[in-house]
Design a protein around this nucleic acid. Structure first.
Lengths: 341, 341
DNA sequence: TTGTACGCGTTATCAA
DNA sequence: TTGATAACGCGTACAA
């Protein structure tokens, strides 16, 4: 390369790194650029990494990219932001096997990645973090020690909003399908209960029905059937049945929709259904389309690498809090309506 | 490191790379290992890469990890197999913007990745592949030129199996919901039609109802309503309505389930529903659970990197075909049954 | 069996 | 303003 332009390697390096100004004669710089263009020359990142002791690589390790329909969004958010800063993202998925996570981190360490993000596919407290000296930020999970900055969805606030939304529509007999059971569940139901209490309603009128910890469509289906039928299996009378269902997630809500259809009840005519997650391919497409809360997955990926890379977070304030809680905006669609009179 | 063990760098390198045998005195080798252990020393991959001119990195670029509920499986399959061979996977997601793909490939090239896999999230023909000298294999897509080896699901065979499964249960009035519309659709309907024809049935008894190209739940819902009701909006009589529905994917099948529930028809009592994809969190959890065809996403990721890395594919034969077609096994669950008599 | 010296492709220092 | 030269941390001929 240097040969072709008839200049020194130093000159080439300066020009290509934008430090030509004031160091290299404009004519020389131009010759260098021309030669680079002609040869398709481009600095070798490996050599650069060795020399600079910075790889411009961030490692992302996750407990399972495959198990969640959302995983993609946090990944692509992270990849995107990394790319914006000239970083590249290397991925490892432990399939939930802890020891593999440790190995992955060690491998990443050998590869001299500049930082690590640990992403959980279901929000949770992570108990045993891989040991490492590298900068580490947590996405969709947190450690109680608070040693690392972590970015998570604000489930409890959204849970409260759920209650207030339904209350605002006039509903007074609401059931929440799926209570505590995982971290997201305890947070959502906590916010929900608090808001119900604040509104002066009895917890017995607005019960939280536990659904175990597997919140799938079929579970939502049978939960809804239980909430809407009496002991003889008949649909409860309008005066006794709930007028609204707050489902802990969109899959449960979908199960409820299925049950409602089979029971001959209309949504939102007879009962309103409120979901959570704004699950792709589901929430917006079910019939009727679900009113729900959007989980900021993409944003979590973005903010995580922003923090890691030292961007103040693209917010006004440098924001040094160790845990950043992202809002879950309410997406109003067709499954909720004022209480039938 | 060499200092601590009191040996030369050569010795360290030999020992750590398993070339000690016959070159290094066992005692020395042991001292080296001990020292490495104590220091937590591990060879620097960056320096290694530079020296060996091999990075042990494979780059994966995709049109969109986020848009598909399956993406994760092909990713994690790829990551896994890469890890098995001491490779690491770097990820880029173009969000469908072509020019970004080219940039990504160039960046990967600068980073000296050892190979590339291009993964599409919906099976399709890829028209403009990023230009590159690097070894490249295609996952879930193909180029007509056949210049690259590509690994794809065998949709047409599965389409035929769908017809034969339903036919075998005695069904004679079947409707396929969602015909051509994307590549997967043309392939599935092609196999389906051929099998119907082979069975000697008239295409008019087993029509394929087009559903555009967005195969979502709501689309399946209205498609099913159309197929099951007459012009006055009443449910067709048992003698006239189809006894089975073959949905082009599980979301469409789910829409059909929703419609059937609202129309008061039971599944599989009145009509059988057959899906496609075995979509995670959906097919197995809908009520009733869907009989469907599993898309071999994880396997596609695995095979793609196997091919890339030169493993003959872990099959008996070296198998040099340029396109490997992976089977989509039928998963029998509860939504299909013999035709009602 | 062990150690020396070189090169991988950069960037950075410093003298010219 | 430019051009040698020295690292960065490794692997490996080749000499000892």
């Amino acid at each position: 390369m240097a040969r072709l332009a008839g200049v020194s390697r130093t000159a080439v390096s300066f020009v290509l790194n934008g430090r030509a100004e004031g160091n290299i004669a404009p004519a020389t710089a131009e010759r260098v650029r021309a030669a680079a263009e002609e040869l398709g020359y481009t600095p070798d990142r490996v050599a650069q990494s060795l020399r600079l002791q910075r790889t411009h690589v961030v490692g992302l390790v996750t407990d399972s990219i495959a198990s969640s329909p959302f995983a993609g969004r946090i990944l692509s958010g992270a990849v995107d932001r990394a790319a914006d800063s000239g970083y590249v993202l290397v991925l490892f998925d432990s399939q939930g096997r802890q020891e593999r996570e440790q190995e992955a981190v060690e491998e990443f360490s050998r590869r001299r990645v500049d930082g690590l993000v640990y992403a959980a596919m279901a929000v949770r407290e992570v108990t045993s973090l891989p040991a490492t000296q590298l900068p580490l930020v947590l996405a969709n999970c947190f450690d109680t020690s608070g040693a690392h900055t972590s970015v998570v969805p604000d489930n409890v606030t959204a849970g409260g909003e759920a209650a207030r939304h339904l209350l605002g529509l006039g509903h007074r007999r609401i059931v929440m399908l799926g209570g505590p059971g995982d971290v997201a569940g305890v947070q959502r139901s906590e916010g929900y209960r608090a808001a119900i209490r604040e509104a002066g309603l009895a917890a017995t009128d607005c019960p939280v029905i536990g659904l175990g910890k597997m919140w799938s469509i079929d579970v939502g289906y049978s939960g809804a059937v239980r909430a809407l039928t009496d002991s003889r299996g008949r649909v409860k009378s309008p005066a006794r049945r709930p007028t609204a269902i707050f489902a802990v997630n969109d899959r449960v809500a979908t199960g409820a929709l299925l049950a409602l259809a089979q029971l001959g009840l209309s949504v939102p005519g007879d009962v309103s259904v409120l979901g959570f997650d704004d699950q792709e391919q589901l929430a917006a497409h079910v019939v009727p389309a679900l009113t729900t809360f959007a989980l900021p997955h993409r944003q979590m990926g973005e903010v995580a690498v922003d923090r890691l890379l030292g961007h103040p977070g693209r917010q006004r304030e440098p924001a040094r809090e160790t845990t950043v809680r992202l809002a879950c905006p309410l997406i109003e669609r067709d499954s909720t309506a004022p209480v039938p009179t």
